[in-house]
Each structure stands twice: as structure tokens, then as C-alpha cells.
Nucleic acid binder design. Structure first.
Lengths: 201, 201, 201, 201
DNA sequence: CATGAATGAGCATTCATTCAT
DNA sequence: AATGAATGAATGCTCATTCAT
């Protein structure tokens, strides 16, 4: 009985998130009104405030879910390919991320360049709670260890990962969202080569 | 006589740009109203529309001027240091840019990660008109040639420069504006090392 | 068994009143939402409507209880001091009221200047029901009789009492809530003198 | 030319004040929306904010103008009757005020018991600026002097005047607005007698 | 009896833009 | 060219009240 209600609430929250995701990627964050979100989610405007304290909280939620999904999917896919070379494993992961962004450029638009890393980084460091971060934390730990095993200090390893993430994000954004620099496939060789140079000791 | 009038107009435009720059960096773009800009510039609200079609046009102008200034200053400074190694010349230029951003973090805030490169890139490619881009074009050409002389194709060279610019921008933004990743000086070694790896053939 | 349930209901109602009293005096009536009241009382929002038809009804209840309490306490206290002079007995009663307001300025805030007398007056005249007014009625009767014994007509006596109550209320409110006119203790001599002049035949 | 515009602005401001006065007295302050005020004044909602920073500022303005008008009219009328006895002059002034409130009970509703004195008192003490207070200040000074001439200290004189004002206000409000205590004319004898007792040395 | 999720009208306030002067 | 008064649509957010469970 109670579960049924909780279920409905969860569904409603997800409908709001989905509606927000759609609208944010279509029109951008500040051009989207709560009225629109509520209408598209099929709930009353007031209902929105039962689930989120304000618009920005919803944005964060949406961004976080978006990045999570992308990362998780890419990780799962890349697990199948078991490569000996650690560096190539990174490249494969990045390649999957790019392919996912190619399929869903809206995700890229919503995540937006500025927000992705800081959010992810924060969540990982805090170990916040809702359980999604667990996987991130593990992934991050794995790469940090790999780099530490290659002679990098922890801090340096962190910086390096940050730079790789930012670089990949920037390239994808420019190519897939802004349409600059030509098709992403033409950028891949240089991007991969750069990443290899960056993380190979 | 006519020149005098033209002068006054130019001054008014610059006052508007300056006011906008101040306010954008203090409060952000969408939190700044045209009313505030006009008031701080000492002109009537209606006057704004004699000089700019809308708020966004002003933003673009401000960003462009901002980036121009930074680049030009960095270039001028870096010219004094004549290094034999081309790669080290790049590093020195980047170092100047970082030092300038350190002094004026507001510039970084206004330029914002997403906007800088696309704008600059566009301006350079189009050869837009107001003459400021001349210097950019020259700088860009110089680096493109250097890379082409080292075996890169023109397109690849362009991609590489783009990646370097984005990387530097992202690192500066995270450190200086968001306060993440620690002080910029602690990031420099890794950043410079990465750039060296990227552009050394 | 039934009593137990009735008891619980009464307790719930009192918790709602107490919560409302707290919030009204902290933030004012229209700044307080039913949501807040219910939350502080530890009941569901819907439950509120089982006990009160709307917010205003609760306000009336709260004001009434508040005034009752003050008057009753003052009366009880003043009974100990047995003075021969009737006028001085009134003064002593007023002094007690003032002292109580001094201790609990929130009561004064909630009662507010406009509401006190009209409510009390209404309750006394109607003989509303919940029994609390009994004591008021007696007190009022006593003073009316005193005045009638001194040559005032009933109507005139009523007017006089009204004026005294309003005057005391206004002075307390200005001094204790608004902080005007200086400390209440400096106002007492003039206030008492005025009341003496008013009711001495 | 400029005067014409200033004139129009003044007219618009007055239309807004008039509309607010009407609505406040019809429905009360917090039940009146800015939308209603603007509509009744025949201006756009945004225009309201060109003339007043917010709703409360308008309320203060309206209350102040209201009280001013009443006092000034009463003073002017009472000047004709030249009475030797100072106390009787006060009574006549009060009588005029009551008659004015009788004609315009809405004024009483708007001024409301709580607000009148504090506002007036503040304005008089500050000597604010817009010139209306001049007359108040003079009136107040006159009465203060009279009382001081009769042996009251300045502070005591101030307290006494405060009490008289509050008393008159409370009686008028109860009778004319709340309809309690019977018609005002039946209250006058007792009220005047009380005031006489209060201010006669 | 009790709950609390859902509602949607309502509100104060902002602001880009226009236009008569 | 310059002004700044006027506009009114738009927005984020609140809250008393209802009602299915």
C-alpha cells in the first residue's frame, strides 16, 4: 500500500526530471520555466515544489543523472573488451563515451561544459548518498591507482584525470553541439593520440 | 566637427561596454539588467538600443574585447623573451596568459569556458572586420606554420591548437574561478608538461 | 475509553494552538502558513482542518485564550492585595497586567491593539459557550457595579471601562512592542494618574 | 514642457494613491493586490514600481496623507472658534476630528489604530522633508508648550498627548468602524469628560 | 480519525523593449 | 541623437484547501 504511493512519487519525480531534461536540452536552462516543466510532466505547478526546492536543484539532479548514465554505460561496454594495455583501455572507454554522446547530443548540451567535472568531482569526494556515486568512486580509484603505480603522486594523478575529462568534454561539445572543428570522427585520432601522450608515463 | 561627434559616440559605446563588463563579472550575465548597465554607463536606457541591438550582442562584444586584450598583452610580453625552442615559447605565452588571468579573474568569469574559443575561432576564420582580429590571425598563422613545419597537416594543427586552448582555459577556470583543484601555481607543472607532450612532435 | 479519545483530541487542539501562538508572535499572522503550524504541532496538514475551519478561526481562538490567561492571572494575583480604596484596586490590577505583558511581550504582539477589546467585549456580551468567559463576566460585573454605585449609568460605566482597557493596551503596545515612548516603567506614573482621574468620580 | 511631464507624473502618482486608498479601505491592505491597484488607477502593473518601491511604501504614503488631511482640516476649522479656555480648544479640535471621521470612516479604516500615532510621531520627530509635517510640528509644539506651562515636564507632556490621541482613535475606531459601543455621539460626552480630566492640571 | 500528496489560483516583482518628446 | 516614462508579459514561488487512501 505504502509502496504503491512511494512508487507513484518516484514516477512523478522521474517525469519531472525527464520533462526538464527535454526542455533544458531544447531551449537551455534559463529559457525554461517551471511552468513549462510542470505542464510537460503533466502535474500542477505547485507539485514541482514537492519534489525539488527550486529550479537549480532540478538542474543539478538532471545533470548528475545524465553524467551517471553516460559513464555507467560506457564502463559496462568497455568491460567486455579486455585489453592488456592500460592506456588502450582508457582510450576504449573514451571512445564509448564519445559514441554515446554522438547518439545523444542532448546529454552533452544539458551537461554543458562547465558543470560536468565539478559536479562529478564533488560527488565522488563527498560520497554523498544516493548510491550512484559508488561506481564513480570505484572507477576513479582504479585510474588513480593505475597512475600512482606509474609514478604519479595522488594529486598529480587527480590533475591528470581532470585534464583528460575536460579535454574530451571540450572536444565533444565543440564538434557535436556547436558543429565546429568538423565531425567528431575526424577529431578522434588527434584526441586519442593526445590522451595517449598525456597518460603514458 | 563630424569627428568630434563620432568620438563622443565611440566613447559612449565604450562606457556601455565597460559598465557591462563590470556588471557581468560581478553578477553574471542573466542577473544583469540593461537598466543597470545604462545607469552605470551614465546614459538613458533607451540610448542602449542605439548602440546595441540587444543584451546578447553586447555580451559578445564584451567577451571578444576581453579575450583580445588578454591575448594581445600576453603576446607582447612573450615577445621579449626570445627562446630558441619553439615549444618553450608556447609555454611562456601560456604562462603569461595564466598570470594575466590571475590578476584579473573577472575576465575569466566573463569569458567563461564555453564562449572563448568558439568566438575567437569564428572571428579568426571570418576575418570579421573591426581589425582587432588581424593580430590573432597572425598569431594563429604562426603557430599553424610551426606545427605544419613539424609534419602536422593544417587540419590536425588546428585541432591541436584548439585542444591546447581549451585545456588551458579549463584549468584556469577551475582553479581561479571555481577554486577547485587547488592553486593554479600547483597545477602549472602538470599543465605545462601536458602541453609539451601535446605539441612536441 | 471515550474520554481517552476526547483527551487526545483536546491535546491535539492545544498543540495546534500553542504552535500557532508561537509562530504568530514570532513572525506575525499573515507570514505564518498552516503548513508551519501543522508541522510544529506535529500533525498532518489535513488534520488542521479537523479542528479549525480556517486560519482566522485559529487566530481568534489564540487571541482569546491569550487575553483570558493574562486577565485571569492578573486577577488572581491582585486578589491577594486587599486594599480599601476601590480605585487603587484597579490600579493594582492594571499594574499586574503590565507586569505580565512585560514578561511575555509576545502575548501583546499576538493580541495586538485592535483585537483585544472587541473580542473580549463580544465574548462577555454573548456568553459564547466554552465557559472561560464566566470569570470575565464576573470581573466586568464587579467593576460595572462599582461604577454604578458611584453614580454612573450602566452604559457610561461600560464606556469608561472600555476606555481604560484601550488606554492601557495602547500604552503597553507602544512601549513594549514598538519600543516607542520609552520604557514602560517611566510611563506608569502618568498612566496610573490618568486612570485614577478617569475612574474617580 | 518638462513641467507638463512632471505634472503628469504627479497625477499618476496621485491616481495610484487614490486607487490604493479606495481598495485598502474596501478590502484591507493584505487583501489588495498591486494588480488591482494598477488596474483601478488605469496604469500598467509595471508602472506602479516606477512610483513606489513596494506595496508597503504605498501604504505608508496613503496613511500619512490621510492623517495629514484629517489633522489639517480639523485644525483649520477649529481656528475659527476662538475660545479662552485652552482645554476647551482641545475638545473642539477633537470634536472636529470625530466629525471628519464620521464623514469618512474609510480614513479611519485605512489609518487603523496601530499605525497612526507611530507614523505621526516619527514624522514629527524627524522633521522629514516633504513639508507636510511642518504644520504637525507646530501643532504638537503648541500643545506641548501649553502643558509645560501647566507644570508638566516635556516628557510627561508628550506621554499625555500620546494617550489622548490613542484614546480618541480607539473610541472612534470601535464606534465608527467596528460598530461597537453604540453611536459615537453617545460616546462623546464621556470621551470629552475623560479628556478634560486628563489634561486639566 | 488522520494523513500528506496534489492542486492551481494568486502574488510581488522584474525587465527587455518601445516610442513620444 | 538622446531620453526615460510606460508597458505588460513572464517568472519563480507560496499556500489554503481538498480528497483519496
Amino acid at each position: 500500500m505504502v509502496d504503491k504511493i512511494q512508487d507513484k512519487k518516484k514516477q512523478k519525480k522521474e517525469r519531472l526530471e525527464q520533462a526538464a531534461y527535454d526542455l533544458f536540452s531544447e531551449q537551455g536552462f534559463s529559457e525554461t520555466s517551471i511552468d513549462q516543466i510542470a505542464r510537460r510532466a503533466g502535474v500542477a505547478k505547485g507539485t514541482f515544489y514537492l519534489y525539488f526546492p527550486d529550479k537549480e536543484a532540478l538542474l543539478n539532479q538532471v545533470i548528475f543523472k545524465c553524467s551517471s548514465r553516460i559513464f555507467k554505460e560506457a564502463m559496462q561496454e568497455s568491460r567486455f573488451k579486455q585489453l592488456d594495455d592500460w592506456v588502450e583501455r582508457v582510450i576504449v572507454l573514451i571512445d564509448y563515451v564519445i559514441e554515446l554522446f554522438k547518439e545523444r547530443p542532448n546529454d552533452l548540451k544539458v551537461i554543458n561544459k562547465n558543470l560536468s567535472w565539478s559536479m562529478v568531482g564533488d560527488q565522488v569526494e563527498k560520497g554523498d548518498g544516493e548510491g550512484v556515486d559508488q561506481e564513480f568512486a570505484e572507477l576513479l580509484s582504479y585510474y588513480l591507482e593505475q597512475l600512482e603505480g606509474r609514478g604519479y603522486e595522488r594529486k598529480a594523478a587527480f590533475q591528470l584525470i581532470f585534464m583528460v575529462v575536460e579535454l574530451v568534454g571540450a572536444v565533444c561539445y565543440s564538434s557535436l553541439v556547436l558543429g565546429q572543428l568538423g565531425p567528431i570522427d575526424e577529431l578522434k585520432p588527434m584526441l586519442f593520440e593526445t590522451v595517449r601522450k598525456m597518460i603514458r608515463n
